[in-house]
Amino acid sequence: MAKRSFLIPGVDKRLLIKDSLKTMPDLTRRRFIAGGASLGALTLLTGCDVVDSSSAEEMLKSVSKFNDAVQAFIFNPDALAPTFPESAITKPFPFNAYYDLDDAPDVDGDDWKLEVRGLVDNKKSWTLKELYQLPQVTQITRHICVEGWSAIGSWTGTPLRDFLRLIGADTRAKYVWFQCADKDGYNSPLDMRTALHPQTQMTFKYANEILPRAYGFPMKIRVPTKLGFKNPKYVVSMEVTNDYKGGYWEDQGYNSFSGS
């Protein structure tokens, strides 16, 4: 059988490929659609095509926004995450990221500075030495991953609300937005009420030792009232803002509030 050519004479191959790529959905959309394809059983059962993927996606996005509002409504700023005795700590505490430990940011603590931006009176950057001078507290709380597993750990650091007061942050703003040193630029927004929660912490130590690289050296934000992915590691800057700037996982479809 002769090979058939699908190329049209006079059409540039490279341009053709470029154009056809444009009509393809981006990676996150493809993930949804891949899911839709496995829904044959459901379509058969209900007799209707519930997986017309773009309209299903829109519906799911609206419900997720609705769920953000519901969670903000039931969030009690005084409700504390349960704390545990040292004997309950999970050993070893798991390293978890979308990359291997070898690819985790290797931050030089002497060069590192925490940048402060947005609606704050004092925008000075903070060295690690300066941050270590601030009063610290320890919490032993349960870290709950969006995947379902959980682990109990011991974190020591400065309550974020104390730091926000210190730098004269406008605490009526909607979010504190964190940028991290992870590859592909991890970031995540934290709603102000959660940022001001007494247990939300700028963490410098794990199990009374300087925060190891695996858990986010030099600084992690520990938020025991949120799922793990809203506890950014390797933080390089924070911005107090009224704008919703999205986040690494939030943009891919994880519920943005994701409170516990």
Binding site: F32, I33, A34, W249
Partner: peptide, 11 residues
Amino acid sequence: TLGGWLGGGLL
């Protein structure tokens, strides 16, 4: 399974 990946399943 429904959703294609964890995020879709959760939604």
